[in-house]
Design a protein around this nucleic acid. Structure first.
Lengths: 348, 348
DNA sequence: CCCCTCTTCTGGATCGATTCAGACTGGATC
DNA sequence: GATCCAGTCTGAATCGATCCAGAAGAGGGG
């Protein structure tokens, strides 16, 4: 067993307070005594104050938690999530804090437990599908948190984009090119639907806030040129991966009149769509969302959102809580990046 | 202030033990009482047992730490590191554990402190340049750990590849194609060297173990065809990023006889090298190391190492410590993946 | 009716530190 | 010589739980 601070104190013949001060407040004791304490500590194999005990007493941990809805390991399959994490990591680093990645089990009870058991000083909630429950649990713990998808109450912290307007800009690009028969591609469309073509009677039925807003934004643009919601083809992907995107798009081949364009809710899905469509020799237009690195090399037209910034600023809201008069919510800009994956609709 | 377990106990009129049991050992009390406790707890706004206090008493945390040498945010710039993390995350998820990403400050004192202050049950050390110091600090804390670069003592846990042989395989591919005048590209070649051409009198002088082994492996293959170490051009990159790779390779243009091939110690560096070389219209061969996703689309010839596996198995060694008779060290296979970035050396 | 076992619950010790009010010392000030 | 002060160090309380030995009561078997 490793020796404790108490053991060191006894060996040196001083009080525990003094040993504690030797580590945490060098100005509270003479330099010689401090050195003597540190020396015997090293000699005894004392590894320094136990972080957990210190956290308990001090009342803070020195780590912030990052919450992903889906399986934690999935988080890394989307480069945009990685961008976000990079930003959070930058800020954490800057504040000398660690990052606790908390895997959320699929079931609500487990997820709640995971949030309750995380030893952190606050949370960055990245895209938690069923955010309400999770956020409630965090709030119950009395910890600060920042969300990034659905805009919360005015007193809550939020960093995000205007999802709907951003999606609309991509769709308007396509309507401008003459596309009228299109498919919208996303994961998390409805709970428990099998991948492929899906019927969604109303956008408002989509539970996941980000997905809902983006689909609504797409629909807005098409509504403006007279294409109504039921005329839009909805494609559900099994999850937010390139492979799932590629797979989902296969369903289009079965349609009598395949769409001339696919609007995806993320770049990974869009890239998957391109894999399938280009593989089949089709030149349908495809748009993505996020602007990850691969989007550029693949020539994907997409909506750029500043991922690293999103992460960094989220974490910073946590570290330097805004005063009552300062902004609690940060709206980041998005840009439509037009590349080669989109072109004019074929004359029909 | 949030109520504590004690407050709940007093309100319900039972002992603290009983409230504790209501959460942690439901079989230790009657179902009714438990329900009553849970109900009043909820009503009082008690968020459940404090994770830090629980960890202190129980003696374990439920999180493992992942250590990166370089700045934490850099970790995410290399897709291979992300692969590794994915694997670790999978295993952690599976064991209901969280992942603490610990940013290591550049200075040794700070780094040591970071390791000492991390509340974790064990560490996965990913490529810690000056591993010795870090590992010593972990050992001083008495925590289990797994390393992935330099092979440690036989009793220590390790998951890795035969770096030298793997590098050699890439180099042999090039010698087979007739290349004799080549450049080796890496970051972390020597401490405090400026990027660009570097003179390294002996491979053994390279401090970073992984870099050293890979360079040595490259050299092995060239030695076998009569090209000695001093004849090899060494290129140092500022860090392990695509941009740094691109930049470093620019130095080659100044040489009277530029090399016909560049062997990089990582894919991101290799991709950067390709950016510069192809941009300048040169057809020099380039090899990478890791086989990240972009390598395939860029046609990069590279050495595949199973990144996700590496992470997963590292974490598993931590979670299920091998008995004395079981293997403490796992050697993973590597494969040379030949693509279009390499070709025959031009006749001179 | 007594002994035994089982279930349910309690008290107090404990995990390993930090904190803060105060005690003691020696020297400077008036 | 009394007072004050700065510099050092100590003791006890505290952070918020978990754990373990054991008490109390209920039921069962002989």
């Amino acid at each position: 067993m490793k020796p404790t601070l108490r053991a060191v104190a006894e060996t040196v013949g001083v009080s525990r307070s003094t040993v504690s001060n030797a580590y945490g407040r060098p100005d509270q004791l003479s330099a010689e005594l401090r050195q003597r304490i540190l020396d015997t500590a090293r000699q005894m194999g004392y590894p320094g104050p136990n972080p957990t005990a210190r956290s308990l007493r001090r009342g803070f941990v020195g780590a912030i938690g990052v919450l992903f809805t889906s399986r934690l390991s999935y988080a890394f399959t989307d480069p945009f999530a990685v961008q976000f994490l990079t930003g959070v990591a930058e800020a954490a680093e800057h504040h000398g804090s660690s990052l606790l990645l908390v895997p959320l089990p699929g079931d609500l009870v487990g997820a709640r437990k995971a949030v309750e058991n995380a030893a952190v000083d606050g949370f960055c909630v990245y895209c938690a599908g069923d955010e309400g429950e999770i956020v409630d649990t965090i709030r119950a713990r009395g910890l600060p948190f920042v969300t990034t998808s659905a805009r919360p109450g005015a007193q809550d912290l939020w960093v995000g984009i205007d999802e709907r307007a951003a999606a609309r800009s991509a769709a308007e690009h396509l309507t401008g090119l003459g596309h009228r028969r299109v498919a919208l591609l996303s994961d998390d469309v409805l709970p428990d639907t099998s991948p492929g073509l899906v019927r969604v009677s109303d956008v408002a039925d989509v539970p996941h806030p980000t997905t809902r807003e983006r689909l609504a934004g797409f629909a807005d643009a098409f509504a403006a040129v007279g294409v109504t919601w039921p005329e839009l083809t909805i494609l559900a992907a099994a999850d937010n991966t390139r492979a799932a995107g590629a797979e989902a798009v296969r369903a289009l081949a079965a349609l009598p009149e395949p769409p001339t364009a696919v609007l995806a809710c993320s770049d990974v899905l869009a890239l998957g769509a391109l894999d399938t469509l280009r593989g089949a020799g089709q030149s349908s237009s495809v748009t993505g969302f996020d602007d990850i690195a691969e989007a550029a090399s693949a020539g994907l037209t997409t909506v750029l959102q500043p991922g690293v910034d999103k992460g960094r600023r989220s974490a910073e809201l946590l570290f330097d809580p805004p005063s009552d008069t300062e902004a609690h919510q940060i709206l980041l800009p998005t840009t439509l990046v037009v590349r080669t994956s989109t072109g004019p609709a074929p004359r029909s």
